[in-house]
């Protein structure tokens, strides 16, 4: 990733600003940049969303296809996350250059939203995606495209993924048994959008990245601020405040008490983010209902 080079004085300036609780753009340490969410930007997809968090620009498209379920969980659908770093964002992403970053983002999304190996603890109830237990189910592909890197990618990507999943309309499927009981049943897919089912995304977590600059915990960093931070913690928090996934990134070690403090900061910030997203989603969906 072609990151801007920072001089020592700039690093000092940013760290001092964080200390005074007034960052380069005037925000406090626990304030998010203005969040813009747009639903339904891709007409062909089952659901889509575009999120702009400051300079960071992310588009997510959701596509549902019929497939076979996981042998470990025959009565659940499947969720597949894929992230692509577009070369539009940075020339370093040409070819395989963005693979590491995209893999990291995809795995972070998967870990926070997908149930663990035991099948419990996921944000989304996947059993609604099942069509015929053990044989067919909906496989939902969530594809994320990064258009511009302005810092704090994980948060933007998780907000966009949640918004797109909220926007997704899974067509209703009717299972028509064949004449012979041993025959493969027929599937009738209902194209009527008003009959489509929506996913209950209230339980999906949002990821908040809390970083340490100097001795303070900061939320929602820009690219320049990211270069000054020494350690960061990515916390996925759901709307009831439970921590759904935690990963530590970056080189520096963290004191355990500082880490717990960061988790609390993340929980507070996530509550605000959830509220903001819920408002936007409600407004947009009301708009869609009024039009459609």
């Amino acid at each position: 990733m072609a990151s801007p080079l920072l001089s020592g004085s700039e690093v000092q300036w940013i760290s001092a600003g964080v200390g005074f609780n007034c960052r380069n753009d005037g925000r406090a340490r626990d304030e998010y940049r203005p969040l813009e969410v747009e639903l339904g930007v891709l007409a062909q997809a089952t659901g889509s969303a575009r999120v702009r968090l400051g300079e960071t620009d992310v588009i997510v498209g959701v596509k549902a296809e019929i497939g076979s379920p996981d042998p470990d969980r025959p009565n659940c659908g499947r969720l597949n996350f894929a992230v692509e770093c577009s070369p539009v964002a940075s020339p370093a992403f040409r070819g395989r250059g963005g693979d590491e970053l995209s893999g990291e983002l995809a795995r972070a999304l998967e870990r926070s939203m997908y149930p663990g190996p035991s099948g419990r603890g996921g944000g989304l109830d996947l059993s609604v995606l099942s069509i015929v237990t053990g044989k067919t189910c909906w496989v939902v592909y969530v594809d994320v495209l990064l258009l511009n890197i302005g810092g704090n990618l994980h948060d933007a990507v998780s907000v966009a993924a949640k918004a797109a999943l909220a926007d997704a309309r899974i067509p209703r499927v009717e299972v028509v048994p064949g004449e012979d009981p041993t025959d493969e049943p027929d599937y009738e897919v209902d194209d009527d959008p008003s009959q489509a089912q929506r996913l209950d995304t209230a339980g999906l977590p949002l990821c908040v990245t809390v970083s340490q600059i100097g001795r303070h915990c900061v939320v929602d960093l820009t690219t320049e601020e990211e270069l000054c931070s020494s350690a960061s913690l990515q916390v996925a928090v759901n709307s009831s405040g439970a921590v759904c996934g935690l990963t530590k990134r970056r080189q520096q070690g963290l004191d355990p008490s500082v880490m717990l403090e960061m988790v609390e900061v993340a929980q507070r910030a996530a509550a605000k983010l959830h509220a903001a997203l819920a408002d936007t989603l409600a407004a947009q969906q009301a708009q869609q209902m009024a039009v459609g």
Binding site: G116, G121, L233, N238, A242, V243, C244, T247, K248
Partner: peptide, 16 residues
Amino acid sequence: EVTQLVSRGQWSGAEL
């Protein structure tokens, strides 16, 4: 100092 922490599943603050 904690150098790495990864968690899966839902944890409340006290459980964590």
